[in-house]
Design a protein around this nucleic acid. Structure first.
Lengths: 229, 229
DNA sequence: AAGTGGTCTAGACCACGTG
DNA sequence: ACGTGGTCTAGACCACTTG
């Protein structure tokens, strides 16, 4: 039960990236190169790269090559980012051109929105789709729902964020340019007012190589016992 | 550019699981079964299963089979769980036998602990290793560090949790019984006192199929602007 | 003895980007 | 024209579990 070849190769590559020996955006050796360099077969090289892809360390551009992620150590921090506009948030994360595009429309609430908002299916709500690019590369797309008349979240005092790995909706997949079968990081947000009323809901998708980790700052209630799980 | 065969198969299986047609713990068709049923090759069947594995919908038991996750819809909720002991937390998540084992020792702080705690490398600190099993299956292992003399986190008022997908440490991998190259969900916790002092740090690992999603409840600061990213 | 999941080899075709 | 990443086939061996 020795370490499989693809784990060994992936480990070596990961170390190169973490230590900075392989800088951001560097092109990795191609599959055929790896096959030659390490004397392994095609599939071993692919499994190694796939391991890096699922950790978000590298990104694949079809027919061009595999590249080290743009910022392999970026952390998404909540809830601070909610006090800023997306422009501000992404600008602090980046040294490149950020572009934010919003489209607003009125749609009929489905079961998914009607339930949490406490309205009826078919009731009109506002949908804002926000698309963010960084230096021409899409980095985020979100669907934001609010009841008519409500604008912004200045009344919100509490935020719930749910993080999961999901197959993106077709709309999100198209915008992010992911391959069929590619998972994305999804953040589902719910903003609540002081009285517990739901003010806004948002579904955000990020490509897997966007963030290395997700940080959440929380306030603890009265008595916390021993914490370790 | 049609949908690849393995995405189609994985989608079909995922639907079966989400709708409950395939109940928790059910054994999936074996690779050779899938090959026959769908008239595809070995590698297509494997890529399909792998897609489910990375979403945590199924779990693989070597030489036994692929099984639907025990609770394919479980959510890990913070910070509520910090007010409970691990026994209580996992008990509410489960209908099975929960066993929690703790070992305490004194170790020398490495750079990783010394920095955040504001002590010197080599200073003694307390390390508590907590191992949790559910019905004989390991579901969590954590390394908890505290300065000597500090016990518990009753003074903590703030909690930071960082979520990431990582290759586990050897200790964690052994306990969880993961295969080489398997990623795990890691939660890095930091407990702070009112004055901002770091009281406790903890590194927790979960197998990929333990939680479907991670929920975090946060309090928003004064002025929140428009939130969509 | 048969079946299983995990690893691996040696090929192949396609659509597209680059030089 | 060539190299690229993505998909796919048809084999193989191993170590172990199950009947």
């Amino acid at each position: 039960m020795p370490e499989p070849a693809y784990v060994k190769i992936a480990g070596e590559f990961a170390r190169n990236i973490h230590t900075g020996r392989w800088p951001a955006k560097m092109r990795l050796p191609s599959y055929s190169q790896i096959v030659q360099d390490y004397g392994v077969s095609d599939i071993v090289a692919r499994k190694a790269i796939e391991l890096l892809l699922s950790q978000g360390l590298v990104r694949s551009e079809r027919r061009r090559g595999i590249y080290v992620s743009d910022r392999p150590n970026l952390t998404r921090i909540s809830p601070e980012r909610q006090r800023q506009t997306p422009e501000e948030t992404f600008r602090t994360e980046s040294d490149q051109d950020i572009s934010v595009d919003r489209t607003t429309e009125e749609v009929s609430a489905t079961e998914e929105q009607a339930g949490p908002f406490g309205i009826s299916v078919g009731d009109k709500i506002t949908l804002v789709v926000t698309r963010v690019t960084e230096g021409r590369k899409p980095v985020s797309i979100s669907d934001t729902y609010q009841p008519l008349g409500v604008t912004g979240v200045s009344d919100a005092t509490h935020l719930e964020e749910t993080l999961a790995d999901r197959l993106p909706t077709t709309t999100h997949a198209e915008w992010l340019g992911t391959e069929p079968g590619d998972l994305v990081k999804t953040v589902h947000q719910r903003f609540f007012a002081q009285d517990g009323r739901l003010i806004m809901m948002s579904d955000v998708s990020y490509p897997r190589d966007r963030y290395d980790k997700f940080l959440f700052r929380m306030v603890l209630g009265e008595s916390s016992s021993d914490a370790n799980e």
